[in-house]
Simulated assay, not measured.
Amino acid sequence: MARPLIHLRPCGAALSCSEAHRSLLDALEAHQVPVEFQCRSGYCGACRLRLLAGEVKYHQEPLAFVGRGEILPCCCLPVDDIELKL
């Protein structure tokens, strides 16, 4: 099974997300992509990013408000290839 790719806009980079990553935030940090965060548990919403394409699955439902087209990378993983606006 292919590992999901994380496409970053506007820079165009494509990063892999492996089984070793516990969250999308972990994957972004492993590739040295700077993302603001505080709690790492979906409580504060500081890591909020815009999801342009694809789907993520939350391993823990976030307590922070998540608007349409937004995700909290601290508590989700990509289901398939995704595109994020940074």
Rank of each mutant, 00 (worst) to 15 (best):
I6N: 06
H59L: 10
C11H: 12
K57I: 08
K85D: 15
C76D: 07
R3N: 15
R40M: 02
A2G: 00
Q32P: 02
A2W: 01
E61V: 12
G42Y: 02
E61Y: 05
A53K: 13
S41I: 01
M1F: 01
A64N: 05
P34V: 06
L51F: 06
P34G: 02
R9S: 11
C44T: 08
V66G: 05
L28E: 10
C17F: 15
L63D: 14
C74A: 04
V66L: 03
E70K: 12
L28W: 11
A53H: 11
L77G: 00
A13E: 15
A64Q: 04
R68W: 00
A27C: 09
C17D: 02
C75R: 07
L25E: 10
C76N: 07
Q38D: 15
G12S: 06
D80Q: 13
A13K: 15
V33W: 02
V66A: 08
L63K: 14
A14V: 04
L28C: 09
S23E: 13
P4W: 07
R48T: 10
Q38R: 13
C76I: 08
C17N: 06
F37C: 06
A2S: 13
K57N: 08
R50Y: 01
E19Y: 00
L86H: 03
H31I: 04
R48Y: 00
H59W: 15
L77N: 06
S23A: 09
K57W: 05
E70F: 11
L72W: 01
Y58D: 13
P4N: 09
C75A: 03
G45T: 07
A53F: 01
L84G: 09
C47G: 09
E55W: 00
P62K: 07
A53Q: 13
P10V: 03
P78E: 12
G54E: 02
V35E: 00
A14E: 14
A46G: 04
R3F: 10
E36R: 13
E29G: 00
R40K: 14
L52P: 02
C39D: 05
I71M: 04
E55S: 14
S18F: 09
S18C: 08
S16L: 07
L8A: 08
G12M: 03
C74T: 04
G42I: 03
D80V: 00
